[in-house]
């Protein structure tokens, strides 16, 4: 554990909680892509199946349980509790164009051809592109609420911090995981355009295009 990893995890946690609270407090999921949230729920589910097979640390277990729980709670709020506010017409990204190629890639390129490892690899690849339906939705409507931009910023910051974590681990532990690194770079790059807008617009709610 290093400082980049810890702050990255906390940033990820903050993003998840910001989104949950935003939906809960406003009683609305307007402007939020339910498809991206389903993809994140799939990501956590397929990645954290090792909860059942191996114990790493109390921190690790707690965070995994919280991430999974929050992901499903978010999906529940969007598709059940506040379904009337869900903007399905603008959430029109075709997720099969992500899930199918990513599934194929996970079977082809992985560290070990075993069930859990392929699911882990699938989750890594899928996470790198899971935000695309959300970014697509924002570019389609041309606007995002302030709180939604904070959510996206924390989510992007988390993966950017993980890149520093991997640099740290490479130099000080000789550890590197090429699959995670390449996917992490892709994921971070997808946020770059957004980061630029977030910083230059001072994080205020705004109309913008991607």
């Amino acid at each position: 554990m290093n400082i980049f990893r810890l702050i990255g995890d906390l940033s990820h946690l903050a993003a998840i909680i910001i989104l949950l609270l935003k939906i809960w407090k406003s009683r609305s999921c307007a402007g939020i892509s339910g498809k991206s949230q389903i993809l994140f729920a799939i990501v956590f589910t397929t990645r954290y199946l090792d909860l059942l097979t191996s114990f790493i640390s109390l921190y690790n277990t707690c965070m995994k349980v919280i991430y999974i729980g929050c992901a499903y709670a978010t999906v529940y709020l969007i598709y059940m509790k506040f379904r009337a506010t869900y903007d399905g017409n603008h959430d029109s990204f075709r997720v099969e164009f992500l899930v199918v190629p990513v599934g194929g890639l996970a079977v082809l390129i992985n560290h070990d051809f075993s069930f859990l490892e392929i699911l882990w690899t699938f989750s890594i690849y899928l996470e790198s592109v899971a935000i695309l339906p959300q970014l697509f939705m924002i570019s389609k409507t041309g606007e995002a609420e302030t709180i939604t931009t904070h959510y996206l910023f924390c989510l992007g910051l988390y993966r950017a911090l993980y890149l520093f974590n991997w640099i740290w681990r490479f130099y000080f532990e000789g550890f590197f995981d090429m699959i995670a690194i390449v996917a992490g770079v892709v994921q971070t790059v997808l946020y770059c355009d957004f980061f630029y807008l977030y910083v230059t617009k001072d994080g205020k709610g705004y109309r913008f295009s991607i």
Binding site: R5, I56, S57, M63, S114, E117, N165, F175
Partner: peptide, 10 residues
């Protein structure tokens, strides 16, 4: 290198 028996990152 990478060891496959468990991933400690989240």
């Amino acid at each position: 290198g990478i060891k496959v028996d468990g991933h400690d990152e989240l």
